[in-house]
């Protein structure tokens, strides 16, 4: 697949001297969902703002669909839809009017049919004559998405689309994102909810301190860096690990009620069979066994706290 968005060594230093982006390079392929994951203040919003033309880059370049976002800003920006993080809508306007406005602002001829289609997809059609101030928070977010989609962009930026929304609405939003992807829209979303990236992204980029630590297929990332844990629950508690089990690197958890075994899912042998045999030989009686995969969150915490991607800096807490 061809890159629809190419970012090269993008740097941004604000007037106060704060370096928000320290040379970010990134290619985004057409039709994918990329989640930019990072803590607050990592540079996620600055990155999006710089691509969209709201912030001026200090150096570096951005090419959108082959158009430079400064020199050919008209062609470049026409391809982009932006959903901002904050709810920024004029309270007194009506839903239909503000969405129609967004289409016109991008120079597209009026198309009531298309606007209706967008509003219907976002379950806003019934609310088309409502004023923004009369809508719920969730509806307002949908209006922001409708505005961004009104000019038929090929790339959609969602800046923290689910920050501060309840679980149900978040799932709703994920559904919308998946539908958009099915329509062929490339989606770049920022989030600090790992769950979100895990649920909908094809690729995950981790950004912190203005640097992109890594960009990788979500599945690969989790497989490469993911660890699995096996918790062996015992009928009678132990105070020390029996000598026969020393070679397995076990941890005692739950006050001695369980033993925790950490293994690599990608290794040729996980060592589980040997472990369970050894447990039985040591005279311990199993009550139950449980396995747990390390989540993207574990990987993320490992990355951000450990600086640059080191491949194995993953720690998993006892379940």
């Amino acid at each position: 697949m061809a890159a629809i968005l190419s970012i090269r060594d993008l740097r941004k230093t604000y007037d106060g001297g704060f370096q928000a982006l320290k040379g970010v390079s990134l290619d985004i392929e057409e039709g994918e969902i990329l989640a930019l994951l990072g803590p607050n203040g990592a540079g996620k919003t600055t990155l999006i703002s710089t691509i969209c033309g709201i912030t001026t880059a200090t150096s570096g370049s951005v090419s959108v669909g082959g158009f430079d976002n400064v020199g050919q800003f008209r062609q470049a920006r026409a391809l982009i839809g932006l959903v901002p993080q904050e709810i920024t809508l004029e309270p007194f306007t009506k839903v239909l009017d503000t969405v129609t406005f967004s289409r016109g602002l991008f120079g597209k001829p009026a198309s009531p049919a298309l606007v209706e289609d967008v509003l219907r997809k976002l379950s806003l059609w019934e609310k088309r004559d409502s004023r923004i101030m009369d809508l719920s928070g969730g509806m307002k977010r949908r209006v922001l998405i409708a505005k961004a989609l009104a000019h038929e962009p090929r790339i959609l930026f969602l800046d923290e689309p689910t920050a501060g929304v309840d679980v149900e609405l978040r799932k709703d939003m994920w559904g919308i994102v998946r539908e958009l992807k099915a329509d062929g829209v490339t989606i770049i979303l920022t989030t600090h909810y790992i769950e979100e990236a895990e649920a909908i992204a094809d690729r995950v980029g981790v950004i912190t301190g203005g640097e992109l630590l890594l960009v990788e297929e979500k599945e690969q990332l989790m497989a490469r860096m993911g660890q699995k844990q096996l918790e062996v629950q015992l009928t009678a508690p132990v105070t020390a690990i029996p000598a026969a089990l020393a070679q397995h690197n076990l941890q005692i958890v739950n006050g001695g009620d369980a033993l925790l075994y950490t293994y690599d899912t990608r290794a040729e042998r996980t060592g589980i069979t040997t472990l369970l045999n050894d447990v039985a030989e040591a005279g311990l009686v199993l009550a139950d066994v449980q396995t747990r995969e390390s989540s993207l969150e574990d990987i993320f915490v490992g990355l951000v706290s450990g600086g640059k991607a080191s491949g194995g800096a993953v720690s998993g807490d006892a379940a």
Binding site: C52, A76, L82, L105, G107
Partner: peptide, 9 residues
């Protein structure tokens, strides 16, 4: 909502 004007072509 000036973001919209700044990011428009």
């Amino acid at each position: 909502n000036i973001y919209e004007i700044l990011s428009a072509p």
